[in-house]
Design a protein around this nucleic acid. Structure first.
Lengths: 243, 243
DNA sequence: AGCAAATTTGCGGAGACCCGCAAACGTGTT
DNA sequence: AACACGTTTGCGGGTCTCCGCAAATTTGCT
């Protein structure tokens, strides 16, 4: 068994390394990487069947690392080890996990015992181990009523990137009104009712467009990291339009 | 010497505790807290002259803890120990540090040696120890040209909370046009030039209002935590208006 | 005091946005 | 086929936003 660990925080990395050595008797080799780029490079340089990924890393996100890994070897077992249950990450993961892959998702705040169980569960027993909290977010995202549909999520991303209605329409290949329609549905789902706030004598308190961003951020549906990532996609699209 | 350590991450907390014991020979007592609330409670319950604070903590931010501490005992020595150099935090700190206080700011990514020096520097030698990276952000924020003025920063906060121009005007006691003017200056400072992006044939790509938020987030001027905090202030103000 | 820079304000118009109403679709279910 | 549900689209009007121009005001510094 050959294990790759990618984690930027020094302490967490060495802690994880120690626990892995104690918990996985069949361990033949263990390599660590301090950021996403290194992780991808290391994975290409050697032959791993198991990987532990922190999600929040400099340069390249854990999600992107996973995508690159699974694209090359879909049967690689991956355990995600992260601080938060950001919906953006969870969405990203469930979208890229291949059907045959074994993976797990555990929080750093979990007790050491749970980490050990997850390591053994995913890498030895080959079962999917998903933290309870993460699971609940995952379900909520999949639920049509409380969660956002994929289309609405796209709209949210574009909105947060600062695009205009027209630009959203162009990017997603719908009419102007279509884009606006998606936005309206989004507003509703986020809990942005028109008469929600008792507008004072100085008019309505909230601008729907910006308030939506605020709500999405505070609800953890998006975060600054996810935005930076999407910004890249946007730039790619923009330059492809310029041709 | 009596030291209080506030840090939510288990590993970092025990690591910091160990280093402190090794580095500070005059240490009489050491108490740890796992979140902001606990930290404030602990500080009230005993008598500390030195505090180490993580900035990103559940419930109550390190900045708020510092505010509460300095409000009671302005001569308390505080060392901030954080992951990032978020401008929002740095702004918050420089705004609340009393003239007589000794404090330091060091990053978690710094080598252990630097942490030791910072501990000794702040708590024993009573000098201000500010990490080089942090210092540069601090200066940029204070600079009138590249940084945002206090007024523009306020506007940014209101903008990110989702307020309308009218609401911003009311909240900040200026005319509607005044609020808009602040926003325009803000747009400029953030690098949002009108012809910046070669608007495609489908019109201007960016909505200034939302694009400004996007830029502020990706530049780390604001973060989700800061927003959640400001949201509280906003709610207070809103309810005070209702009366 | 005196000057320069920053900030605020009014006016006004072009454009963007929000959204109710109503009519097509598409997909999957019964 | 008939039906429900989600999504898309056009239209139209009311509102909000953006911003150039110009003048009044405040602030900071010498």
């Amino acid at each position: 068994m050959r294990l790759l660990i990618a984690e930027d925080d020094k302490l967490h990395r060495s802690f994880l390394e120690g626990v892995s050595r104690d918990t996985l008797p069949e361990l033949d080799e263990l390599i660590t990487a301090a950021d996403g780029e290194d992780a991808i490079a290391a994975f290409g340089a050697s032959d791993f069947d198991s990987v532990v990924l922190d999600l929040q890393m400099p340069k390249v996100t854990g999600v992107e690392v996973a995508k690159s890994i699974w694209a090359r070897k879909p049967h690689t077992k991956i355990l995600f080890w992260s601080n938060y249950t950001e919906e953006a990450y969870i969405r990203g993961i469930t979208k890229i996990v291949p059907p045959e892959a074994v993976y797990g998702y555990i929080l750093k705040s979990a007790p050491e015992e749970q980490l050990k169980l997850a390591l053994q569960g995913v890498f030895i027993a080959e079962q999917c181990v998903i933290d309870r909290e993460v699971r609940s977010v995952q379900q909520r995202a999949g639920d049509r009523l409380s969660g956002l549909s994929e289309l609405e999520f796209e709209a949210l991303v574009d909105l947060c990137l600062g695009l205009t209605d027209k630009a959203i329409a162009a990017r997603r290949h719908v009419s102007l009104r279509g884009a606006q329609s998606r936005l309206q549905h989004l507003y509703q789902k986020l809990g942005l009712e028109k008469g929600d706030l008792p507008a004072g004598p100085w008019g309505p308190s909230f601008n729907s467009r910006t308030r939506a961003i605020s709500l999405a951020l505070s609800q953890g549906i998006l975060n600054a990291d996810a935005l930076r990532r999407e910004e890249k996609n946007l730039q790619d699209w923009l330059s492809s339009q310029g041709e």
